[in-house]
Computed example of a mutant assay.
Amino acid sequence: MQPKNIATFECEVIQKEFKLIGQSITVNFPDSFPDAAIKLQKDFFNRVDEVHNTKSKEVLFSPYMCNEIIATYFACLEVDEIDKIPEGMIGFKLPMTKYAKISCSNKTISEGYDAVFAWMKEHGYKQRWFDHSSPVEIYYIDENALEETAEILIPIY
């Protein structure tokens, strides 16, 4: 179900675990972004019917890992169980993690990052760096909309 407001920039702390199946790409950073991420998401969206046990085929999860030289970016669906992984895809679990979450849109993702990091600093949170965690972008797909609701989740401690 899609949240009602686009780009509210409201922040909160949530705890969540994810079971995901999807595809990934590793490219130079920042030179290849956002083009590589957009292409990966479009390519994966053409294959979503191959993924079984999905919670929703209209919600795209994009965890990533980046060291400012290269980035690995994922396009995934959340599933009930990680089984029957289609060829060329990967299944993995992000364990229960505390996240700073902000609501934005696919058009305001950069502003969303600025706002969530400012909110984290203001509230005394620090980013948890890849210790059994990963930042996640979530996109609520609406093929008929010019702007789609998105969320950014940053692992925190």
Rank of each mutant, 00 (worst) to 15 (best):
Q2P: 07
Q2D: 13
Q2K: 15
P3S: 07
P3I: 04
K4I: 12
N5C: 07
I6N: 08
I6P: 00
A7F: 09
T8V: 14
T8W: 05
F9M: 15
F9C: 07
E10W: 08
C11V: 01
C11R: 00
E12A: 14
E12G: 12
V13G: 15
V13Q: 14
Q15R: 14
K16L: 08
E17L: 13
E17D: 14
F18M: 07
F18N: 00
K19I: 02
L20M: 11
I25P: 03
T26K: 09
T26P: 04
N28H: 12
N28M: 12
F29Q: 02
P30I: 08
D31Y: 08
D31N: 13
F33R: 00
P34C: 07
A36E: 10
A37Q: 02
I38C: 11
L40C: 05
L40W: 04
Q41C: 12
Q41T: 00
K42Y: 06
F45I: 04
F45D: 06
D49G: 03
D49S: 13
D49L: 11
E50H: 12
E50A: 11
H52P: 06
N53S: 15
K55Q: 10
V59I: 15
L60P: 03
F61I: 01
F61G: 00
P63H: 04
E68P: 06
E68T: 08
I69F: 09
A71K: 02
A71R: 05
A71V: 10
T72V: 11
T72D: 08
Y73V: 02
A75S: 14
L77C: 11
E78K: 14
V79D: 02
D80F: 10
E81V: 09
E81N: 13
